[in-house]
Design a protein around this nucleic acid. Structure first.
Lengths: 191, 191
DNA sequence: GAATTCATGTAACTTGTTACATGATTTA
DNA sequence: TAAATCATGTAACAAGTTACATGAATTC
C-alpha cells in the first residue's frame, strides 16, 4: 500500500514514465523507501488495470518511446484516501542486532569487527545525508515551501538516525570490549 | 538469510519446536526482527530438507505432539558461516516519512494529527522497551554474561531509537505548525 | 570499440502476510 | 459455554529482489 501511495504521490506532482519514477524514488525517498524497477512497472500495470492511472505513449526521438502515466480522477481520490488512512506500522528489520545476539560466543574480535564495519557504513550514510541537505536537486521537486520543509525534515531524520546508531555502536563496542563491564552491569539484575 | 540464521541461532541454544520458536522470537528479538508463524514452519521444513536441522517427534500428553528440531553438524556449520558472512544491509522502510512527503498539501491539522499519533505509538513502544529492560524473562535465555550484555544492548538500542524519533517528531511538529518557520529555513538555501 | 544512458518489459525467485483448518485441554 | 492455549500445518497472496532481454544513442 505504501508503494502504491508513493507512486500516486509522485504522479500527482507531475505525470511521468516508469523509468523517471524510479529516478524520482532514488533521488528523494530512497533512504527510507527503496524500490526496484520491477516493482514500479508491476505496480503501474496494476494501477492502470484498476483505472487509477492512464498512460499515453510519447514517441522518443531516437530514444525508446516513453509511456507517461498520469492520475485519473479515481487515482487522485485514491491518493487522498491513502494519505488519510491510518499509518502502516513501522517495522524495523535490523540485521546487525539480530546477528549480534547470536554471535555472543564468537571471538570478541569478530564482534568488534562487525560493529566497526557497521559504524563505517553508518558514517558514510550520514555523509550522504549531509550532502543531500545542501543539494538543491532534492528540493527542486518541491512545489511549495511546506514541501521543501518536509523534504528537509526527512533528511534531518536520516542524520539523527545515523547519529543515534553511531552513539550506540560506540557504547556497545566499549562495553563489549572490557570483560569487566559485563559483570558490573549484570549485577544490577540481582537487586 | 537472516531469518534462517536466527532460527539456527535459537536452535543452537536449545532444540525446540516451531511453536516455541515463534515464542522465542516474540519474546526477544521481535522489536528488530518480527516473524510470522508461517514463515517459521516454512523455513524449518526447508532447513530439514537441506539437512541443516533434524526433527524428532515428542508425544504430547493430551496436547498435540511436538516436533522438536535440533541442529545437525551441517546446521552448526551453517550458523557459523552466517555469523561470519558480511552483514545484510539495513533497509529502513518508514511509512510515516513516506506519507509525510506526499501529504504536504493536506490540511496542517491532518499532518499534525499523523505526527501526534505516531508520537503516541512511539511513546508506548518506548515503555515496552523499558519494561523489558527490567523483565528477567528476556535474560533467561542468555547462556553467559556476554549474552545478557548483548540482550541489554539490543533493548537500549530500541530505547535510543524511540528517543530519537520522539525528538524528531517534536521538532517536525514545531516547524510545521508555525507558518513562519518554513520561510526562515528555506532562505538558507539561497546563500 | 566498450560502456553507459534511455526506456521498456518479463520470469523466476525469496520473503513476508493473512487467513484458514484441525482438535484436545485448560481457563474465564 | 465461550475463549484461549498448545501445536501443527496449508493456501493464497502481496511485496521485494535478481537477472535477463531488447535496441538505439551517447559518452568514454
Amino acid at each position: 500500500m505504501s508503494l502504491r501511495g508513493a507512486i500516486l504521490g509522485f504522479l500527482s506532482v507531475e505525470p511521468t514514465s516508469g523509468y523517471t519514477l524510479k529516478q524520482r524514488f532514488d533521488g528523494s525517498v530512497r533512504s527510507f523507501w527503496s524500490v526496484t524497477q520491477s516493482q514500479i512497472y508491476r505496480e503501474l500495470h496494476a494501477l492502470e488495470r484498476e483505472g487509477l492511472v492512464e498512460a499515453r505513449t510519447e514517441p522518443g526521438d531516437g530514444k525508446p518511446d516513453r509511456k507517461v502515466y498520469s492520475l485519473t480522477e479515481a487515482g487522485r481520490a485514491a491518493l487522498k484516501r491513502w494519505i488519510e488512512e491510518p499509518l502502516e506500522p513501522l517495522v524495523l528489520r535490523h540485521p546487525l542486532l539480530l546477528k549480534l545476539v547470536f554471535a555472543a560466543d564468537a571471538p570478541p574480535k569478530k564482534l568488534d569487527e562487525i560493529l566497526a564495519r557497521y559504524a563505517a557504513d553508518t558514517e558514510s550514510q550520514r555523509a550522504e545525508y549531509e550532502a543531500r541537505l545542501v543539494d538543491p536537486r532534492i528540493f527542486e521537486l518541491a512545489r511549495s515551501t511546506r514541501e521543501r520543509e518536509i523534504w528537509r525534515l526527512s533528511i534531518e531524520h536520516g542524520i539523527a538516525w545515523c547519529d543515534t546508531e553511531l552513539r550506540w555502536i560506540e557504547r556497545a563496542r566499549g562495553e563489549l570490549s572490557s570483560e569487566r563491564a559485563g559483570q558490573k552491569r549484570a549485577s544490577r539484575k540481582a537487586k
